[in-house]
Design a protein around this nucleic acid. Sequence first.
DNA 1: AGCACGCCGACT
DNA 2: GTCGGCGTGCTC
Length: 669
Amino acid sequence: MPAEPDGPPPAATLPEATPPGATRYARVVVDSRLPQLDRLFEYRVPPGMTGVEPGVRVRVPLRGDRLTSGWVVETTDARAWEGEVADVEKVVSPVPVLQPEVWALARAIADRAAGGAADVLRVAIPGRQARIEKQWLAQERAELPPLPEAVEAAAVLPGLVEARRRVAIECAGGVAEITDAEGAPVWVGRWAISLASIARQAIERGEQAIIVVPDHRDQRQLRIALAAAIGDERVVELDARQKNPERYRGFLRCIDGEPIAIIGPRSAVYAPAPKLGLLAIWEDGDPLLSEPLAPWVHARDAALVRQGQSGCALVLAGHARSSDAERLVELGFLEHERLGAHRVRVLPSALTDDGRRVPAVAFRAAKEALATKPVLVQVARPGHAPGLRCGDCGARARCTSCAGPLGRSSRGAVPSCRLCGRLAAAWRCQSCRGTSLTEVGRGSSRIAEELGRAFPGVPVMVADGEHERLTIDAKPRMVVATRGAEPLADGGYGAVLLLDGDALLSREGLRVAEEAVRQWATARALAADGATVVLTGAGGATVTAITGDTTVPFAKAELAERRSLRFPPAVRTASVVGHPDAVAEAVEALAEIEHLDVLGPVPAPADVVKGSREGELERAIARFAYADGARVAGVARGRVLAAASRPRKPGAPPRLRIRLDDPEPFDGL
DNA sequence: AGCACGCCGACT
DNA sequence: GTCGGCGTGCTC
């Protein structure tokens, strides 16, 4: 920021604004999960203590001499708290890890989710690494090298960042070759190149870009594409999979405020970025973007709040439009864009008579493609046989300890429980005492064996959770992958076989069809131009979603159906779980809100809250309009607060838990 | 969470 | 008369 030509120096360069002798106070958010403590506490800065500045981590006494960690939100000369004021115990580190805009964001997100701000901060701020911090404090900031030459023709949606547009982007798919930081050619999804180009717009304006991805596979592609677009010195990764020191190093670079692109998993949406030009979410329909910790906020929702606060450009992108993004398009909040063209032929195919073999169309497509390129086979389940039946009476083989389904992880392996993993070495049928087992269904390794026999001489590899493979070269081969584990092939796949459509769609659940379409679109995007994609075992709207060249009509239809059923994302929800009394009180309080309806309460399933027994707790679901969100969250927070100060037995589940926009109860609908 | 405060039953 | 039950409230 330039100083006035002849004016005083900027305030930040003055040594210490407070005159000696005046008492300073610090308002601190304490790092606690208790709803009762979710507010600012005021402490005196003892004379002689330095470094108590907004954003730093401090230790403060809470209730007598018990010390708690917290972050300074602001410092003042005038105290607002009338009662007794304790002293800040010490400054843990001088680094302002809680930036003002992140505090404002955490507060707003917590309020919207009826949760505590400290819970959000725990996700937003990585644990301190003293060694890394020391390096960061000592190092002098090097000037960033100039941006790589821009390729005019490669510009994607020019002016998007400058105009602060809010856009839902459907990316057409396909792969492309670019040059990595060392000058070697690498293949990445075209989506990554598009997002990198948009991010460059922010960097060119001297602003930051945050791009959130569901997993490290996408992050890898995006990192490569960004390195090509803006130089790898300007790419900061905030990956929870990284070693803690690496993660903290990246986090500290964000605080520097340079024009950089920040990429990472769902928590990256909270990265400090004082000059945020672009906030983008890749694959916003991916359930991985939903935070599994309280207050269970989806990165898309966090991004919407953050965009509202910072006014930056917003992008929700994916190979398939999510019903949530489509809702925002229909509302006029987001514009629709479609990027690129991907020429593939998608052939729907019914299951064959015996339902066991690869259909003839798929066989032909694979055979043709294998002459020059690899072939991707997407299957629903890992392992050898996902299910087992009694060979004598046909009863489903179940785990003796948890009643979960037994399966076989590899040919001839001892059956094991797919839920708890226990081995069932001496299995006997519960109903007929029989000991022979028949395999039901085919997992990735069994399909790989079958394909190996069907295509003699063609190498077959498996890619699933256990055999992770990010990329493969362009040599012809069969790649059998579970959903989400598909490797990226140099040059793209010559054919993509989406087997097991029926298995994907047979589950019950609000988002089953939408999720299937998303996973198919993801696999389809890995195909080379001109490739054939075969989809088996699916029907109806999901098929046209994937054979056509846009998923938008499908998302529209999904949304329309959810509207008629009053299901999310047409409405918001609050799931209320706890002691029957507490649930009844909460439901009563929520029912005061107009147009809010309540399903239940009904006995809650076991373990809906960790350690709860079947029928011990009750659950109710409230549905309400987006416009009533603040009121619902306020009432919910009030009930949780009231329930929290009531006694409960040690080890017992909490008396009341309210989760807003909890997808879980709708999984089985 | 944890701990102090406070108002009703069995005891020296 | 008092010791102590745990419902209620509070944490700068």
